[in-house]
Write a protein that binds this DNA or RNA. Structure first.
Length: 432
RNA sequence: UCCCGCUUAGCUCAGCUGGUUAGAGCAUCUGACUGUUAAUCAGAGGGUCCGCAGUUCAAGUCUGCGAGUGGGAGCCA
């Protein structure tokens, strides 16, 4: 445990005089007593400053402090029901490092554009603290999950010589005179890893230059991608389901409830995240959607209204598998029982959050893969190393990709994905 | 890329059918107040009404173009 006092561990210091370093979150009071709220990064505590204790000069200086002034406050910690956190500091002295005036983010409401322009300051506020701490919890949960199950962390490269899938638009960079692209997925490299180590995962930033300006898209986002050798689509679905249950449970058990309360997130839907998740084929889902007056065009992917309608029927994430081969990536294995269907699965989150996991069993036949690369108009030269994986010890294998920000948005119950990342990168936003 | 909305004080917004000097709350500054929880009360300062062009006796208000921003679609995690 930390041996230095901070607001998060303040209960250890009741009736002791300590010094807290932080920033002024808010200031109320009269000309005899004032209530500076000090923020130190770990929390917020209300302090009680009396003119009779501090003296006229120091009290007057305190009253002039602006929001986010940098302060060290020394005083005694007391339990007090009148303070929101239950603890209060009776101030003995204040050291002012900087008196601030004109801090742009006031305690009143602001619009999203203004707040994102001031993202570097906005992240000091309570709500953003809660979201970014839930993000941190999700990351820990994901790492722990795979580490405890003997997956090797095998980082996929960010610079890639060719598109992984050939579908999405890529960010091109000048790599010493030749084009290189920022990775849109680390999956292909994980397939090499799975054949080397059996179970691997990568967890890092990925980039999509798609002109998608919606509440569910970022141009830079974090994705975790596990890959398993000797695994079929059912193994992948079992893994994805178990993973989601454990991650949500971890977040709730490790302090997430406190943060979700700040966000006024109803945790009921999160507590519902228990096995088994409903599993259905694409064709079964289409039949259900047709009954719900939301028909799907034959052999087309779902649109947003389809996903919304379908997920509304369930109280937990659902897994839809065996999508039309035509709408899926070249590396996805065709269903041996029906080549028009691919052995891929999407996990759709409830409450309208849509696709959070894309997964599948990979094509393990060199011949079929060569044909698919040609059908997708891809340059085979770029994939010779990938075809090697089918020449030297090819086995059934698969894995999934989870978008971290979509997970965090759903867990937190946010309207927009952009608040789930410290500095969002979107089509129309590169700053700050 | 397509469709729809919005742009007025530092921030959030009001501003009627086009009509005299542009409105509020918060923030800022000054003052009052011994337990405040977005404290309250009194006062003050603060405006290129997004930009350009047009219609009109008259434009924050109407029209066109452009920019920014928000939402949706497609595509995806």
């Amino acid at each position: 445990m930390s041996n230095k006092p901070n607001i998060a561990n303040i209960a250890q210091y009741v009736d002791q005089e300590i010094t807290l370093n932080g920033w002024l979150y808010n200031l109320r009071g009269s000309n005899k007593i004032a209530f500076p709220q000090l923020r130190d990064g770990s929390g917020i505590i209300q302090c009680v400053a009396k003119k009779s204790v501090l003296g006229d000069e120091a009290f007057a200086e305190l009253r002039r402090l602006g929001q986010e002034s940098a302060l060290s406050i020394t005083g005694t910690i007391h339990v007090d029901e009148r303070a929101k956190s239950g603890f209060e500091m009776q101030v003995a002295g204040i050291k002012v490092h900087q008196n601030v005036s004109g801090y742009p983010i006031s305690p009143k409401e602001h619009g999203p554009a203004f707040l994102h322009d001031n993202r570097h300051l906005w992240m000091r506020s309570k709500r953003q603290h809660a979201i970014l701490k839930v993000r941190h919890l999700c990351i820990r949960a994901i790492r722990d999950y795979f580490d405890e199950r003997d997956f090797l962390l095998l980082d996929s490269p960010i610079f890639t010589p060719n598109p992984c899938e050939g579908t999405s638009t890529l960010f091109e960079t000048d790599y010493f005179g030749q084009p290189a692209y920022l990775s849109q997925s680390g999956q292909l490299y994980q397939e090499a890893g799975a054949m080397a180590f059996g179970k691997t995962y990568t967890f890092g930033p990925t980039f999509r230059a798609e002109k998608s300006s919606t509440r569910r898209h970022l141009t830079e986002f974090w994705m975790v991608e596990p890959e398993l050798a000797y695994a079929d689509i059912d193994d992948v679905m079992d893994l994805a389901e178990d993973f989601m249950v454990e991650v949500v449970r971890y977040v709730l058990e490790r302090g997430g409830r406190e943060h979700l309360a700040v966000l006024e997130r109803d945790v009921g839907p999160l507590e519902n995240v228990q096995k088994p998740f409903p599993r259905m084929t694409y064709d079964e889902a289409c039949a259900q959607l047709a009954k719900l007056d939301q028909p799907v065009d034959p052999d087309s992917d779902f649109g947003a209204p389809h996903e919304t309608k379908l997920t509304q029927q369930y109280d937990r994430p659902i897994m839809v598998h065996r999508y039309p081969t035509a709408v899926k990536a070249f590396y996805m294995k065709e269903d041996p029982e029906n080549p028009a269907r691919a052995l891929g699965m999407d996990m759709l989150a409830p409450e309208g959050y849509g696709e959070i996991i894309g997964s599948g069993q990979r094509e393990d036949s060199e011949d079929i893969l060569v044909r698919k690369i040609a059908e997708h108009g891809l340059n085979r030269e770029h994939f010779e190393w990938y075809l090697d994986l089918r020449r030297y010890g090819s086995v059934p294998h698969g894995g999934f990709g989870l978008g971290l920000e979509r997970l965090v948005a759903w867990v937190c119950g946010l309207q927009h994905i952009r608040e789930t990342v410290p500095f969002p990168r979107m089509m129309d936003r590169l700053r700050p």
